[in-house]
């Protein structure tokens, strides 16, 4: 299995699938988006290079660019560029290299970097959202739309404050809503997800499992609202397609994959509902990551005892 990943073919495909999302983000928020992504990539490259340049045959893997692009796509459009750099450095250094480099990391590096900056800089990460551009040519003719600030009001925040319906379900689905760079459009994310599945880049089980479990637990915790609304808002869709499918930090067995997916869904809704933070997906994923070896081990030993009988 690792044979294929090390050829980095897969990583190229993930990057291709991110291109439409990035273009859409530029359309919504202006060319500054590209700068955020570029800064993350440059610093990810430097960080990984510093870790491996002494080793024999040390080459920076494609995975570093995937991680950097993913982490940049989860940042809000107003993010200062240096925070983008910090996120990329933490992702690569603490998410991957300290565990021994590519293939041996326990946590999803991109989500780890995002969580670090989310906790460190709550102001920059959660307060200032900008209204997206609409019409033609949208953000393609602007650097950024910093005048149209919409303070503290993503869909999830509104939900917590009890203001529902400022953005409709269709808005959330097509993605003309304020939010982080890559997470706004559920439609494009689903298309990218389909591409990843059909090009055999990612497994479909974690995507479907997590999505289903988020829907189910939302229906339980918020019986009054439409669960699709929650699935399409916040970082959940983006995370489902690009983060849960990370081949390194997901469990290896088939059954454990399903358990992993359900666990992420449950924790996401649980954290969104009961904790201090509006977004629960990243914490859910990190928690599920840390249970991953245990799940794998448990399922394996259970099936062994089952076989003996």
């Amino acid at each position: 299995m690792f044979e294929r990943i090390l050829k980095q073919q897969i990583m190229n495909k993930v990057l291709y699938s991110l291109v439409p999302l990035m273009l859409f983000a530029i359309y919504l928020f202006g060319w500054r988006v590209l700068a955020v992504v570029a800064v993350a990539n440059i610093f990810a490259y430097i960080t990984e290079y510093l870790f491996i340049y002494k080793k024999k045959g040390g080459k920076v893997s494609m995975a570093a660019f995937v991680t950097a692009t993913l982490v940049a796509m989860t940042l809000p459009p107003t993010i200062p560029l240096w925070i983008s750099a910090v996120a990329a450095i933490i992702s690569i250094a603490f998410g991957k290299m300290v565990f021994g480099g590519f293939g041996t990391n326990m946590f999803n590096p991109a989500i780890l970097g995002r969580t670090f900056v989310y906790i460190s800089f709550p102001n920059q990460m959660t307060i200032s959202w900008i209204k997206p551009f609409t019409g033609f040519p949208g953000g393609f003719s602007f650097w950024s739309n910093s005048k149209a600030m919409e303070t503290g009001a993503t869909i999830l925040n509104q939900q917590r404050m009890g203001v529902v319906g400022l953005h409709s379900l269709t808005d959330a689905f097509t993605g003309i809503v304020p939010g982080s760079l890559g997470e706004t459009s559920a439609l494009l994310i689903i298309l990218s997800g389909l591409y990843l599945i059909f090009s055999k880049t990612a497994k479909w089980q974690p995507m479907l499992g997590t999505a289903a479990s988020i829907l189910i637990f939302n229906a339980i915790f918020y019986p009054a609202s439409n669960p699709l609304y929650f699935l399409f808002s916040g970082g959940a869709m983006f995370g489902i397609v690009f983060m849960t499918t990370d081949p390194v930090s997901q469990p290896k067995g088939k059954i454990s994959l399903w358990i992993y997916a359900v666990l992420i869904g449950f924790l996401t809704v649980f954290i969104r509902r009961f904790s201090l933070f509006a977004e629960g997906f990243m914490f859910a994923l990190l928690l599920a990551n840390s249970f991953m070896p245990l799940i794998d081990y448990g399922v394996e030993s259970l099936s062994k005892t089952g076989a003996k009988k």
Binding site: P80, F116, I119, S120, F121, P122, N123, Q124
Partner: peptide, 9 residues
């Protein structure tokens, strides 16, 4: 300077 909240925790 922007304070890093995580460092306080």
């Amino acid at each position: 300077w922007t304070n890093w909240s995580i460092m306080v925790m």
